[in-house]
Simulated scan of single mutants.
Amino acid sequence: MAKRKELEVERVKEQESAESSSDESSSEDDTDMLDVDFEWFDPQPEHDFHGLKTLLRQLFDVDAQSFDLSALTDLILAQPLLGSTVKVEGNETDPYAFLTVLNMHEHKDKPIIQELTRYIESQCKRSTDLSQLGTFLTPPNESRVGLVLTERLINIPSEVVPPMYKMLLEEISWAIEEKEPYNFTHYLIFSKTYREVASVLDEEDTPKTKKHKKAAKKGSSEIFYFHPEDEVLQRHAVASGSFGYLKESAGSDSKRTFQELGIKPEGHMILIEAAKFEGAVKALQDYFNQS
């Protein structure tokens, strides 16, 4: 594969809000602006194993224990000219974000891909929104699916994402020119969402208000995105949807977002035809340029 990636550096303004006054009518949030240089690198086998494995564990959440994450990390690092990591203190540090694509057909005999395939197929059977997706992974379907895996630390701004998708498109194009097996028919993006759920903390001591009950009821069906870019990408999808994890979580109270509500993380998948993937990435760039 031809090598093209030069180091890219982008300065992103990250806001850190200070504590505000308890008087909402008169308080104003103090905001500090932190300048950070984000650097994009190729995956580095000698430096990135532990950082990528940690991000994969975060991506798969409580179901991460269902997979051999070491084998998955090794597979990602075995294609160092495809995909990107984002760092802030040089190449030898742990990545704060990553994006890559794996050829599910090319690696179909590898145990980790077989694990992922069975997992995805089982989730598709449980979700009406994803039922169509499962047919693309099951023989005799001849679709060549590229599994897109991407995750970042929670405080990393979304603006680091469009450059990674742009570089991925370029790398795939060059790989195809070199006759490498990245000529996909579809891209399957694996991600995460969450729903707001009622907290059970002190529920015996504190009666639920009408506002609490209404919020809990609304939160049970409304989907929120850990990755804002997913809302843009799924507009171009053949199929997309969220699904519940197979393992039991520690409970919503450990992941409180508001005083009255906790969150329930879920998995999310987006299937995009290869012919529409470039347009989806362009829409993603336009979205963040307008933000």
Rank of each mutant, 00 (worst) to 15 (best):
M1S: 11
M1C: 06
M1E: 04
K5F: 06
K5P: 00
L7R: 10
V12A: 08
Q15Y: 15
A18P: 00
S22N: 13
S25L: 12
S26F: 08
D30W: 09
D32H: 12
L34P: 08
P43F: 02
Q44P: 00
G51V: 06
T54V: 04
Q58W: 06
Q58K: 15
V62H: 06
F67P: 00
L69F: 04
D74G: 10
Q79L: 08
L81Q: 14
L82A: 07
K87N: 05
V88I: 12
T93C: 06
T93L: 02
T93K: 10
L99V: 03
L99G: 02
T100V: 04
V101P: 01
L102N: 04
M104S: 11
M104T: 11
K108E: 08
D109A: 15
I113P: 00
I113L: 09
E115Y: 01
L116W: 02
T117Q: 10
R118D: 14
R118G: 12
Y119H: 08
E121S: 13
C124D: 05
K125Q: 14
R126W: 06
D129G: 05
L130G: 02
L133Y: 06
L137T: 06
E142K: 15
S143H: 10
V145A: 03
V145F: 00
G146E: 03
V148T: 07
P157E: 08
S158V: 09
V160F: 03
V160S: 01
V161I: 14
M164A: 09
M164H: 09
E170P: 00
E177F: 04
E180F: 02
E180P: 01
Y187S: 01
R195I: 00
E196H: 15
V197T: 11
E203I: 10
E203H: 11
D205C: 03
I223G: 06
P228N: 14
P228A: 15
P228C: 07
E231C: 03
L233W: 06
R235K: 14
A239L: 02
S242V: 00
F243A: 03
E248Y: 11
A250K: 15
G251A: 09
S252I: 01
G267V: 01
M269I: 06
M269L: 12
A274D: 08
K276T: 03
F277L: 06
A280E: 07
K282I: 10
Q290V: 07
